[in-house]
């Protein structure tokens, strides 16, 4: 554990708490892409299949359980109580390509051809692009609520800080893995436009609006 990873995990935790707060406070999931939320649920379920086979620490297990449970809760609530508050007509990104693309990538680029390892690798590639339906929806509507922008910033910062963590771990431990590094870089690049608008507008107290 190092400071980049710890802050990254806390940002991830914060992002979900902000999203839950947004949905509760506004009593609405408007502006949230259901497809991205569904992809995150798939990401965490496939990544944490080792939950019962590979004990790391109480911290690790608690975080895994929280990420699976909270993403499942959000997907469930968007389908149930908050179904009428978001518009599926705005959420039109074709996620079949992301699901299929991540499958192809994990079959080509992986370290071990085992059940757990392939699913773990799949989750890494899928996470890199899971935000695309959300970004696509925002590019169509051209704006986002401030609290939604904070949610997305915390979520993007999580993987961005993991990239810094991997560079730090290489420098201090000689630990290096290409797959999560490249996937983390892809995700951070996809976020670039969002980060730019977030820093130039939302951090200065303005509404998140695309130029």
């Amino acid at each position: 554990m190092n400071v980049f990873r710890l802050v990254a995990d806390l940002m991830h935790l914060a992002s979900i708490l902000i999203l839950l707060l947004k949905i509760r406070k506004t009593r609405s999931a408007a502006g949230i892409s259901f497809k991205s939320q569904l992809l995150y649920l798939i990401v965490f379920v496939t990544r944490y299949l080792d939950l019962f086979t590979h004990w790391v620490s109480l911290y690790n297990t608690a975080m895994k359980v929280f990420f699976i449970a909270s993403s499942g809760y959000i997907v469930y609530q968007m389908q149930r109580r908050y179904r009428a508050t978001w518009d599926p007509a705005l959420d039109t990104f074709r996620i079949e390509f992301l699901l299929g693309g991540a499958a192809v990538m994990s079959l080509i680029f992986h370290t071990k051809f085992t059940f757990l390892e392939l699913f773990w690798t799949y989750s890494i590639w899928l996470e890199a692009v899971a935000i695309l339906p959300q970004l696509f929806q925002m590019s169509r509507t051209g704006e986002a609520e401030t609290i939604t922008a904070h949610y997305l910033f915390a979520l993007g910062a999580y993987r961005g800080l993991y990239v810094v963590n991997w560079i730090y771990r290489y420098a201090t431990e000689g630990y290096w893995e290409w797959i999560p590094f490249l996937a983390g870089m892809v995700q951070t690049v996809l976020y670039a436009d969002f980060f730019y608008v977030y820093f130039s507008r939302v951090m200065r107290g303005k509404k998140f609006e695309l130029p």
């Binding site: 080792d50 590979h54 790391v56 690790n60 390892e117 993991y162 963590n165 630990y175 999560p180």
Partner: peptide, 10 residues
Amino acid sequence: SSPDAAHDEL
């Protein structure tokens, strides 16, 4: 490096 090390991360 062992691939398992990555699984300690979230």
